[in-house]
């Protein structure tokens, strides 16, 4: 082997690597998303992995919860398999816009988000609540002054808390729900801001801390989010959610996971 052949083979290896990479390329003249999904036979849905009772790990490490029920029903209605992809508050919008996932669950509506992504039907009630220990008196947003508060960065909780909290509030932004909840439970922050149902899961397990819901910051039902200009997919999702509402299966999931019957009035922004 001479140096030249070594270099040549290195170069060839690089070329191979490169062309293998090109194999992954997505064509930009995209067919309709719904055609892609049917063709692949798989619906990729971005969900949180640490977001009980909407989506969290079970003993065999599969994800379970309200969001997973709904995602499964959507896949069934499109007659494809469901593949859940676990995302964080921070990376999920890029995941969607870069077509790593077809849909996102648990996305609250905001104007900023609407510039980048599209919203299909709302499917779950979501109340963003301030949660803290019983011993700490918090009645409204002014009481947040000087308190340390854990929140998941880049989520609607983050933006609504940032807008509401006085300047002296010490907002600690974490990367995922796991860290938010752990920071609160371990006493690293005095308060946390999460959905009230997520909070309820935590509350029921922490006798020592005796946490309770202090007040609600925002009511913002969870939507299914998708990329812009995917009108056929959006229609299909909206139809599927409407059907789940009509046949009572959404209500069943609500009773199973959120422990309360579903009130369709709570699905309005």
């Amino acid at each position: 082997m001479t140096l030249k052949t070594t270099l040549k083979s290195t170069f060839a290896a690089l070329l191979l690597l490169g062309s293998a990479g090109i194999g992954f390329m997505t064509s930009d003249a995209r067919a309709d998303a719904i055609d892609d999904i049917t063709k692949a036979g798989v619906l990729n849905v971005g969900v949180f992995a640490d977001f009980p009772p909407f989506s969290s790990a079970s003993a065999d490490m599969t994800l379970k919860g309200y969001d997973i029920d709904v995602a499964q029903a959507l896949a069934d209605s499109l007659k494809v398999k469901l593949k859940t992809v676990s995302v964080t508050g921070q990376n999920r919008i890029p995941y969607l816009t870069e077509h790593r996932v077809d849909l996102l669950m648990s996305v609250g509506y905001s104007k900023e988000r609407e510039q980048v992504i599209d919203f299909a039907a709302a499917y779950a009630p979501y109340y963003i609540a301030v949660i803290g220990p019983k011993a700490l008196e918090i009645k409204n947003k002014d009481d947040l002054a000087g308190k340390s508060i854990a929140v998941n960065r880049g989520t609607l909780e983050d933006t609504s808390l940032t807008a509401a909290a006085p300047a002296s509030a010490d907002v600690k932004r974490f990367d995922n729900y796991n860290s938010v909840i752990q920071a609160f439970i371990s006493g690293q922050t005095q308060l946390m801001v999460v959905g009230n149902d997520v909070g309820a899961q935590v509350l029921s397990r922490q006798e020592a801390l005796a946490p309770e819901q202090k007040f609600q910051l925002l009511t913002s039902p969870s939507h299914i989010a998708l990329n812009k200009k995917e009108d056929r997919l959006k229609q299909a999702i909206n139809d599927a959610v409407a059907k789940m509402l009509a046949d009572g299966s959404l209500n069943k999931s609500s009773e199973a996971w959120l422990k309360t019957p579903l009130n369709p009035a709570n699905l309005k922004d």
Partner: peptide, 22 residues
């Protein structure tokens, strides 16, 4: 784990939020 690859640490984060035993 931070970019979302499901290895040891990321799995531990998911388990953490189901067990609350960090």
């Amino acid at each position: 784990s931070i970019i979302g690859f499901e290895e040891l640490v990321r799995t531990s984060n998911a388990i953490n939020n189901a067990t609350f035993e960090p």
